[in-house]
Amino acid sequence: MASEATEAETPTEENLDAAVDATHGGSVGETHAATEDHGGTFPPFDPATFPSQLLWLAITFAALYLLMSRIALPQIGGVIADRRARVDADLKAADESRRKTDAAIAAYEEALASARAKAQGIANETRESIQADLASKRAAVEADLSEKLTAAEARIAETKAQALSHVDEIAAETAQAVASQLIGDVPQEQAQAAVSRVKE
């Protein structure tokens, strides 16, 4: 490889010279002016080209800066910011939904617990009211019975008293009948008076 490279060295230089000759002698247009420009100096260090380069660099870079800062970057940055805002909003909404779900579950459980408590309350109440009803009915029946008992007792006492009061009458009648049989007519009043006298 090394030998080939050194072999190639000479033709390269020849070719180079030929190339330079060709541009110098042949075409007269812009390439001519160009080769003459860099005839002596290395093109990047040729001060004759500096004004043009600086002028166009200033124009193009200022244009680039304005186009970037006013149009391109706000557009791209806006898209990115929009996306970030959207993602944040969606995450927040998801969070909100989860919170709502949790709240709904809590509310449901609370409702369930209160319903259960209420049901128990109603059951207790019903049981109590039934018991109270039962008790009041029993009390009423007992009161009724005791009333009837006292009434009956009163009636018995009355009947007894009546019966006892009739004893005098019967005794008087009997005495009158007996006396009538024995001694002839005896007025009722006399018989009664006699009976009451005996009783005393």
């Binding site: 043009s52 380069q53 166009w56 660099l57 124009i59 970037m68 391109a72």
Partner: peptide, 22 residues
């Protein structure tokens, strides 16, 4: 000496490509 050169052309192309692409 001020001129529109091949360098200027490529500066303009650089700006145009960058801007249009973005």
């Amino acid at each position: 000496h001020f001129a529109f050169t091949n360098s200027a052309l490529f500066m303009v192309a650089t700006v145009a490509i960058t801007f249009l692409y973005l």
